[in-house]
Amino acid sequence: MLKIENLHATVDGKQILRGIDLEVGAGEVHAIMGPNGSGKSTLAAVLAGRDGYEVTAGRALYQGQDLLALAPEDRARQGVFLAFQYPVEIPGVGNAYFMRAALNATRKARGEEEVDAIDFLELIKSKMQLLEMNQALLSRSVNEGFSGGEKKRNEILQMAILEPVLAILDEVDSGLDIDALRVVASGVNGLRTPDNAVVLVTHYQRLLNYIVPDFVHVMDEGRVLRTGGKDLALELESRGYDWVTQGAGTGVTA
């Protein structure tokens, strides 16, 4: 589904990604871990098409096509979803209106019929129940005045509405208490199918107790230093990142 080869990227002329290789197959959950500044979030941003990142070498194939050549909205319409580490507040745009506009933009691009406001309300309310979200958030402006936990749930709600093929969740666990984490994780787990894939970018192992990965990749200084199964995350938890970054993790095995 996603094949990243030798990906290099810079921000403001500064090299952040220095040769990422990663392959994600349908039905898989991948965790990308690493210390702060290792390039995890940059990788997520480059895949989603954020401005200000320049790909200097390598490529990313999504369903066989050149993902990096697509505009951000086309990536979204073809099923790539980024849950933001810091969801953006948009004063004046109603949350429900925004999500319906997003869903219909995607449906229109696929040649499907648009969903009207009434059907959409039914859909979104059922999804909100699964995420134990307060329905008052529907009529509020997008993310405006939401608590940290509400913002993260709102991201997963969008994921639930848009049903992406490839979901990239950037530190979706940061700032969540244990109850919220469980809700968000069960939301993500509930959206897993044999046909889609999830890439979790996270600093901590904690999230992986709830969303169990098939593969764990450890990044540092813009490279994947080590790849393993879910046990790798546990080992990191007990031994720290230094164990990988200072020599123990030798070969790039992805």
Partner: peptide, 24 residues
């Protein structure tokens, strides 16, 4: 730009994103 990107990352094209933000 951050708001425009957020909307685009959800499938809205540039023009729709800008219109929606101006309207808001």
């Amino acid at each position: 730009a951050e708001q425009v990107f957020y909307l685009k990352s959800r499938g809205l094209d540039e023009a729709s994103a800008r219109n929606l933000l101006t309207f808001a």
